[in-house]
């Protein structure tokens, strides 16, 4: 019980420190987003910058996400296969 309380206090202190020392909103540190925001509409022709980032600039991440989803669905379909298929 005492260890739980100490851990809770430390965790709450960490969260409060992180909340007060947070980076200001809409002021990113890197310069990559400036390039993307200013050039995405002219380079891809798409109006939605988020989709052009997800499918064009960072296409590998979407490929990995599709692979993860495919693996998860295949795992569920293999694990919960129907009983008739098992007997055949």
């Amino acid at each position: 019980m005492k260890a739980k309380t100490i851990f809770f206090i430390i965790f709450m202190a960490f969260l409060l420190y992180a909340a007060f020392e947070i980076h200001p909103f809409s002021k990113p540190t890197s310069k990559m987003d400036d390039y993307i925001i200013s050039n995405a509409q002219n380079e891809t022709g798409a109006n939605n910058v988020v989709t052009s980032v997800v499918f064009d600039y960072r296409g590998y991440d979407t490929l990995g996400e599709a692979t993860v989803l495919f693996a998860a669905v295949s795992g569920v379909l293999v694990a919960l296969r129907r009983k008739e298929d098992k007997h055949e």
Binding site: T44, A46, T51, F55, G59, A66, V76
Partner: peptide, 28 residues
């Protein structure tokens, strides 16, 4: 019909996610 390969990839991922999630719930 603009944006290059973006609409094609959108359709592909849409088919994939729709079939995958509904297959999971149906099989469960």
């Amino acid at each position: 019909n603009s944006g290059g390969i973006l609409p094609i990839l959108n359709i592909a991922v849409g088919l994939k996610v729709m079939a995958g999630l509904s297959a999971v719930v149906a099989v469960m």
